[in-house]
């Protein structure tokens, strides 16, 4: 029988269920809403969900996935070869282990806000 959904393991955080036709980031958003990604060290970085803004950059440690277009401004050829993706633009084809590239920093109001580790360009 062909699998229709997979487990997305987020390194040091938890795991989410993801359908084969679902963007990995969207599955992570749902899992966060259900409290399944505690303790996520930072709020899940969700932006355009369509491969353009680069905020959901992640590194795939293990697993197979289907890739859809993502901006070269955020995933260079070198990044791609090193296993980096925008998690909004991949669909699972096996269980995946990934590492989020987000970092936390304290904003002016003491509220934790998300930023990419590197300057978007």
């Amino acid at each position: 029988m062909t699998a229709t959904h997979f487990r997305i393991y987020v390194k040091d955080v938890g795991a989410a269920d993801c359908n084969i036709d679902e963007r990995v980031l969207v599955a992570l958003e749902r899992a966060q809403g259900l409290g399944q990604l505690n303790p996520l060290p930072c709020k899940l970085p969700v932006g355009c969900r369509r491969g353009g803004c680069g905020i959901c950059k992640a590194k795939i440690v293990t697993g197979e996935f289907l890739r859809t277009p993502m901006s070269r401004s955020h995933i260079s050829v070198d990044d791609e070869q090193a296993g980096f993706v925008l998690s909004c633009s991949i669909y699972p084809r096996s269980d995946l282990l990934l590492k989020l590239e987000c970092s936390t920093k304290t904003g002016t109001k003491g509220k934790k806000v998300i930023s990419n580790e590197e300057e978007n360009q």
Partner: peptide
């Protein structure tokens, strides 16, 4: 929201 200040293309 978080995206207003940080999400651009």
């Amino acid at each position: 929201n978080d995206a207003f200040l940080s999400v651009v293309t």
